[in-house]
Nucleic acid binder design. Structure first.
Lengths: 205, 205
DNA sequence: CGGGAATGAATGAAGCTTCATTCGGTTAGC
DNA sequence: GCTAACCGAATGAAGCTTCATTCATTCCCG
C-alpha cells in the first residue's frame, strides 16, 4: 500500500539521494549519470524524466537540502531567546548537521561554491536565507546591547560561516579523526561570542 | 641580452600566468588547454613541453603561489613581536594579497579545495605551511600569557582561515562592491583577538 | 489492451593529448 | 668567413576517449 501510494515520488527521491552520495564521493564533474543511475537503481534515461539535465539535478539538491537545513535551524533556535545563546545553538546545529548528513555537507561545501562562482545565473538564495538568520541574531544582540555596536553584522556573518564551513570541511575530509564536531562548535562559538559580546553585558530582560 | 638570457624560463612563466587568468575566469574544468595556450601566446603542444598534463599545470600554480604567499607573510610579520599584533598583521596581509593578486586568489579559493578533496594523492602542504604560521602565533601567545590557554590552536587556525577565505571569496565574487578588504581585515582581527585574548593581558616583556 | 513510465543502447559533441613536421639558431668542417 | 648538417624547441591538426543526452522499444498497471 504505502509502497504503491508513494510510488511516484519514490523514484525522484531515490535519484536525489543517490546523486548526493555519488557527488559527495567523486565530485559532480567526475560523477557520471550512469553512476547515479546505478546507485539509484534506475536506468540512465529515467533520470531525464525527472530532471532536465545533470546540472539541474545538482541545483535541485542545493535547493531542497538548504531548505531542509534552514528549517532545522529555526526549529533548533526556537525558544532560545538570548542572542548570545542563539549563536552557540547555531554553531552546534551546524556541526550536528554536518555529522548527521555528511554526504549532503560534502556536496554543499564544494559544489555550491563552484556553482555560485561559475554557473552564469545561479544565486544560492537558499544559502543566503540560512545565513541571514545569523545576521539577524547579531542585529538583535546589538539592539539589546549584548553585542558590540561596532561589529558589522554582514562581515561577521561571512566570517562566522567561513569558520563553520572550513571546520566542517576539515572534519569531513579528515574522516573525523582529528576534529570533534562538538569541540569545533564550542570553539567557534567561544571565539565569536567573546569577539562580538559587549564587555559588560546588559541586564538580561 | 637579457631577453636571451631569460629566454628559457619565459615561456613556462607565461603559461603559468596565463593559466591563472584563464582558470580564475572560467574555472579549471571549463578552461580548455587551447584557451591557456592562446592567452600565453604559445601553441597547445608547447604546454606539454613544460607540464605533464592539465592537472599538473594546476598543481604547479598551487605550489608556486603558496610559496610566494607564505614568504610575503613572513616578511610582513618580520619585526612584529606581540602575538596579538601578529594576528592583525596576518589578517591585513591576507586581504591585501587577495586584492593585489585577485586571479591567484580565485584559483586558490576554489580549485585548491577541489583538488584537495578529489585528487587521490594531493596534499596541499604549502597551504598548511602558510596556516601553520597562525597556529604558531597562537601557541606563542598562550606561552606568553596573552592568549587564553583554552583556545585550541589547531581549531582556531581553521576557523581563522575559514573566516579569511570566505570573506576573501565574497570580496572577489562581489566585484568589490560590498566588501572593503581593509574593513574585513580589521573585523576578522577584532573578533578573533577579542575571542582569543586573555582578559587581563600578562605584563609585556 | 491502452498509455504512461522506464529502459539502455546508440549517438555525437567535446577537448585532452599526441606526434610528425617545421624552423630558427648553433656548431663544425672546409 | 661561409655553408652544410644538426639540434631541439615549438607547432597545431587529428585521434581517441569519455560521457551527457536522446529516443525507439519494452514493460506493466488499471
Amino acid at each position: 500500500m504505502s509502497e504503491k501510494a508513494s510510488r511516484k515520488g519514490d523514484k525522484r527521491e531515490a535519484i536525489v539521494e543517490a546523486a548526493i552520495e555519488v557527488f559527495a564521493q567523486k565530485g559532480f564533474h567526475a560523477a557520471r549519470i550512469s553512476d547515479v543511475a546505478r546507485a539509484a537503481g534506475v536506468a540512465d534515461g529515467t533520470i531525464y524524466l525527472y530532471f532536465d539535465n545533470k546540472e539541474h539535478l545538482l541545483l535541485s539538491i542545493f535547493e531542497e537540502k538548504m531548505d531542509f537545513l534552514r528549517e532545522g535551524l529555526l526549529a533548533a533556535l526556537d525558544g532560545v531567546d538570548c542572542p548570545l545563546e542563539r549563536v552557540r545553538v547555531f554553531a552546534r546545529y551546524h556541526f550536528d548537521s554536518v555529522r548527521r548528513h555528511r554526504a549532503v555537507s560534502e556536496v554543499l561545501q564544494v559544489e555550491l561554491r563552484l556553482s555560485h562562482k561559475f554557473l552564469k545565473d545561479y544565486r544560492p538564495e537558499k544559502l543566503w536565507d540560512y545565513l541571514r538568520v545569523f545576521e539577524q541574531i547579531v542585529r538583535d544582540g546589538q539592539a539589546r546591547g549584548v553585542m558590540r555596536p561596532d561589529v558589522d553584522p554582514f562581515l561577521a556573518k561571512w566570517a562566522f560561516f567561513g569558520a563553520l564551513d572550513e571546520l566542517g570541511q576539515q572534519y569531513v575530509l579528515s574522516r573525523r579523526e582529528r576534529i570533534s564536531p562538538d569541540a569545533a562548535a564550542e570553539q567557534v562559538a567561544d571565539i565569536f561570542l567573546r569577539g562580538m559580546a559587549t564587555n559588560a553585558p546588559a541586564p538580561s530582560r
